[in-house]
């Protein structure tokens, strides 16, 4: 029993063990001191010793990232609803959304910082801005991908399937059929939202994990800087796992 589960863990996670092993080896073979590259224990110790501090900063980053994600989702959803009723709006917005999707968003974080000023609200704006367009595109394509059979059915019952008069069709058929699309958008966006929040904190330099990373580095506290990086990675993995789980769990309930 124990051996079985051990071997299962090994077959799934050997890559990660290998990574940690290589890290330890790299540090001890080159005999590096903590200022250059801290060892795994040093990083974990620093994480444990400053647990309160790291927890507060991690919470702050998580809240801004998920707040931005939620705001972007809400905005994207509402505007997608409006676009569905007024197709000319989608004609104008879709090219913009596609264009912005192909932009290396990180290159534009400094610009948004410049426009919005230095502070936590800017981190929120950046993540909202990032998540808005993908949410909009995914939600709108979900609304439009309603199965033809359902459309025909509603038509035969005398229910309008487009424009303002079709709101009942929208409410009961189009909206639910967009749920899987929105879940996919969230799964794809969650780690990116965290990355962008970290980047913004890194550049703005007031608070959050991204700021801890750069601050500790300039103070030569490498173990602290790496601990923040490790924590950020763990958070990102957690985000990814949570949203993948939600996607897997609810996708089938709403499949169009």
């Amino acid at each position: 029993m124990v051996r079985q589960s051990l071997s299962r863990i090994w077959s799934r996670y050997w890559g990660i063990f290998l990574l940690v092993g290589l890290w330890q080896l790299f540090v001890s073979v080159n005999n590096l001191n903590t200022i250059v590259a801290p060892s795994p224990q040093a990083v974990v110790l620093s994480l444990l010793n400053n647990a309160d501090y790291f927890a507060a900063e991690a919470l702050r980053t998580t809240l801004t990232a998920s707040g931005g994600l939620a705001l972007g989702l809400l905005l994207g959803f509402v505007i997608a609803c409006l676009s569905w009723t007024a197709p000319s709006l989608s004609g104008v917005l879709t090219p913009m959304a596609l264009l912005i999707r192909s932009i290396p968003i990180v290159a534009f974080v400094p610009i948004i910082v410049r426009v919005a000023g230095y502070g936590t609200h800017t981190v929120l704006i950046v993540t909202t801005f990032l998540s808005f367009f993908p949410c909009y595109v995914f939600a709108l394509s979900g609304f439009q991908e309603v199965a033809q059979v359902r459309k025909d059915f509603c038509c035969s019952l005398g229910c309008s399937t487009s424009g303002f008069r079709g709101w009942r069709f929208f409410r009961h058929v189009a909206m639910p059929s967009a749920v899987p699309n929105i879940l996919t958008a969230l799964r794809l966006l969650a780690p990116t939202a965290l990355l962008v929040a970290l980047v913004a904190e890194f550049l703005i330099g007031t608070d959050g994990l991204g700021y801890v990373m750069i601050r500790a580095r300039s103070d030569m506290e490498m173990d602290k800087s790496w601990a923040a990086a490790l924590l950020a990675s763990a958070l990102s993995v957690l985000f990814f796992v949570i949203f993948s789980y939600l996607d897997k769990k609810y996708r089938n309930n709403w499949q169009a």
Binding site: G15, P191, M213, A228, A229, S233
Partner: peptide, 18 residues
């Protein structure tokens, strides 16, 4: 698979110091 997902989930900015 796990390794790649993990490495991908690490924010690039966190890898800078490393």
């Amino acid at each position: 698979d796990t390794l790649s997902t993990f490495v991908n989930a690490i924010p690039l900015i966190a890898l800078g110091p490393l």
